[in-house]
Amino acid sequence: MAFSARHLLGIEQLSVPDIQSILDLADQYVDFNRKSHKHSDALAGLTQINMFFENSTRTQASFEIAGKRLGADVMNMAMAASSLSKGETLIDTALTLNAMNPDLLVVRHPHSGAVDLLAQKVKCAVLNAGDGRHEHPTQALLDALTIRRAKGRLHRLNVAICGDIAHSRVARSNIFLLGKMESRIRLVGPKTLMPSGIDQFGVEVYDDMAKGLKDVDVVMMLRLQKERMDGAFIPSEREYYHRWGLNAEKLALAKEDAIVMHPGPMNRGVEIDGEIADDIRRSVIQEQVEMGVAVRMAAMDLLMRNREVPSGRGVMV
């Protein structure tokens, strides 16, 4: 059964066949995107609005390219940071948008659950491009596609997710996705950057990076936000790099063919050594960006196909 929901709000609500159907279609879009002529009319005549209440260059560009290649009319609405403090504008914005009859909203918001809230109020499909510390489903899907293409499978892999887990929506979505696919997940990082109750997530937690990376198939690094020093989460960048930054020595503990991933943008010399990031034999970071466009095309294409399903079926939220 293919992915049949009306919105894509998080990985948590997806089934394994849902995930597989998105990844299978994304594989086709990877080939499509490598052609010289890359234009489809799958979403011709449909309106896609990208609403980013939080600054983003890469994700927004990726969604824009994905929509344009599918033939959608894409519009970017820059939501000023100042309008954010007035939370009620979110509902007002939703009502305003309803009146413009868009077909697809791509939303990023700094508050967890805000995209769910918006989805309850608008008539069109909503795609979560990251909400607070909650979920970032297309990032997890693009990571999964990258892993599947590199390793040939998603099950029974050892995956280490390293760094600031507590504040990361990427980590949460990846934990959900890899857990559903029956891979073993290790979380590696300082205890101060682990979410509370993490022992109930079905993961193994490591403070010691050497132990955490031992024999893993995938090393997934997370970005360390510079402001984490303020709240006394960690003492300094240099101590963080020393203990939890990925360098050749630590990577040598992983499997010989382990791949290195990062959702970007990277802090070279903070969470990852620049040479590792650029090592095309280990790093799949550039490929992740490429997969991002394909996965977003697949997700939007499927959401728009579901839109044609008569109402009452396939609504999952």
């Binding site: 659950g113 949460r172 979410p195 509370s196 109750g197 993490i198 022992d199 109930q200 997530f201």
Partner: peptide, 10 residues
């Protein structure tokens, strides 16, 4: 704080 708040990202 706890597993639920962590899952919800609150």
């Amino acid at each position: 704080s706890g597993a639920l708040a962590s899952k919800l990202g609150l």
